[in-house]
Design a protein around this nucleic acid. Structure first.
Lengths: 357, 357
DNA sequence: GCCGAGGGTCGAAGCGCTTCGACGACCGAT
DNA sequence: ATCGGTCGTCGAAGCGCTTCGACCCTCGGC
């Protein structure tokens, strides 16, 4: 007898459902997949049996027969200097939207190296790959090209040819921050960026933000100092002190390192500088951080959720053999809160927040 | 011909390897699994063919035939008030140690609800389940019992009967913090705990810590105030102000909410209290946080890595049908850093860096 | 009244792997 | 010499599903 499946694994199989509903196995399959027309009557009978027996298709069998695992891999970084909450937001957004496309998510960390990717992809454990924290010259990029699986990168490598990448337009984000400060009349600003290790690795977003800041500053006749910034409170404090010692007239700060946001505020307070009265601060960080800070920070949020969703959507397109754009950059939006104000250049200030003189 | 596999999927199959090595398919399988003796000569020939062809076993086929997916599920919370970096540490530890047991990790978020768990488990996508952020009366617990898959919980529900749970001994952690402060002569301490929502949910660790604090305080003749604590800087500040307004003689603080650690320090500084001179602070948080704070914090670290490793090890035992203990509690260790000192009760203090007079 | 076109269903052939039983070869013990 | 016992290998039977081709009906068009 074929009812053995139930005995062996405790789970009903498609054969059990078919028998219970009095139809062929293939009919059950077609009810489930919708790939052929099935009469209303039959469909309902089958669905009733499925519910009654508590049937769940066996993932392995399905993957084997259909050559689709309905699983995508998410490769997360574990490196120093990563922005943990942002990464987490990505991850959850990816899981949620993958589920909405009927896919599950396999979690990989980079510490298994490229071999892990190869194993997963070649073994058909996953249909496609989502890679986070991409470096400008990432070792995984050539591998992705070689692998025969669709992939989407979150972040931009130096050469995007033949790839599919999604990210916030960090270059533009840098510009937007400076433009906001410049519009308020600030003439000397500083970027407190990611930790030095992140720049050294050639991580795209850090470099792109910096470039955006520098470029916008030049265009607006603003002087910009950029420097990396570690995460410890003590280090931040030191940086800030040195910064103001060398450039006492800096009145605008762009902070990219979310872990440093709190310490920066503390350091400013400790040195007697009030925000935004003496120094305006713009952060590039999750909204939640900006909201919870005190004062609440004017910020350019990193739309982790949106990027994750987009990345999954693009991957799904590629899984369906549809074409996908090489680069998708999301436009940054700046949210004005309580940490930025008109630069104090003299007695007069315009109603639009810019100074005169 | 059977070489079709290569054509269809581009991937060599076990049959290709067998043909290339001039052995039977089953022999290749036994070389890979080691479940039967294979001569040195044959083994090497097979391994050479595997390498040469770049063979990777098809995960679906393997899962189907062996009834083992070699994948475990990790159920992560997405709720408010969770400690993101800690969760992330868990996740990475779980992935890493799962890999060392030749398993991969499927990431689930709770927002699909218990149904997600059922789907995954019943569909044999995973062999076992790791559940994080367990509440005292968690809806998933009955489901886990009903499911026929091994599971391990990270955290403790109210009733652990028939389950396998791992966690830091938070009760003991609360005690340890208070004992440390008591030993330094502090007579009035406060616990700034998790956000109120976390207590309301009945999340074990928060309640257990509080109980430990209260109990140890009673035993050592210390007065203890406990209160929840949100994550925004402004809220922390308010809490701290209220706290000291009502209990001006509090000289020791236990902070459990890692997101609040920075703001607490800032709030103390703002109110003119020096750490540790005026107030001693003990945190329950990842070491990394404690190290990066300023001053560096005396802390009881949450050994996320160790817990993750243990959880995976236990799950592997259960997958192998070996018995596993119902509850595994890790002993907390307190690391003394620069944020705690002798209470100032009078002119005398020890030689360990505390003041005299 | 006949034909072609779908609609609805079935049966069977795999998908690539594990595992069980079988079998020859070779060993030391009788 | 003979007999059991290992060791090393093979062949074949699934694992539970998808999918292809075939088949039977029922229609509408002519």
């Amino acid at each position: 007898m074929t009812g053995r499946g139930r005995v062996a694994s405790g789970q009903p199989t498609i054969a059990d459902v078919a028998r219970h509903a009095g139809v062929a196995v293939s009919t059950v399959s077609y009810v489930l997949s919708g790939k052929r027309a099935i009469s209303e009557v039959t469909r309902n009978r089958v669905l009733a049996s499925i519910r009654l027996l508590g049937y769940h298709p066996n993932a392995g069998a399905r993957a084997l027969a259909s050559r689709r695992a309905n699983v995508i891999a998410l490769v997360l970084p574990l490196r120093s200097g990563i922005q943990v909450p942002v990464v987490m937001q990505f991850a959850t957004a990816v899981v949620t939207s993958a589920r909405s496309h009927d896919h599950d998510v396999l979690l990989l960390t980079s510490d298994e190296g490229p071999e892990g990717l190869r194993r997963i992809a070649a073994g058909a454990l996953v249909d496609g790959v989502l890679v986070m924290d991409v470096e400008l010259h990432d070792v995984r990029v050539p591998l992705l090209r070689e692998l025969r699986r669709p992939s989407v990168l979150i972040g931009l490598p130096a050469d995007t040819g033949g790839l599919t990448c999604v990210d916030l337009d960090f270059h533009r984000a840098g510009q937007v921050c400076v433009e906001h400060l410049a519009g308020l009349g600030h003439r000397r600003v500083a970027l407190l960026g990611a930790p030095a290790a992140v720049y050294d690795r050639g991580t795209g977003f850090a470099h792109r933000t910096r470039a955006g800041v520098v470029e916008a500053a030049a265009r607006h006749g603003v002087e910009a100092v950029t420097l990396p910034c570690e995460e410890s409170a003590a280090d931040v404090r030191r940086r800030v002190d040195v910064l103001f010692a060398r450039h006492p007239d800096i009145s605008g700060l762009v902070v990219q390192n979310e872990a440093a946001v709190g310490p920066v505020q503390a350091a400013l307070a400790a040195s007697g500088r009030r925000v935004p009265h003496d120094v305006s601060v713009v952060a590039v960080c999750p909204d939640q951080f900006a909201e919870h800070a005190s004062p609440r920070l004017t910020s350019v949020p990193v739309p982790a959720e949106e990027i994750g969703r987009q990345a999954v959507a693009l991957l799904m397109r590629k899984l369906g053999d549809e074409p996908a754009p090489e680069v998708t950059l999301l436009e940054p939006r700046l949210t004005v809160r309580d940490s930025t104000a008109t630069a104090y250049h003299g007695p007069v200030a315009g109603p639009d927040g810019t100074t005169t003189g």
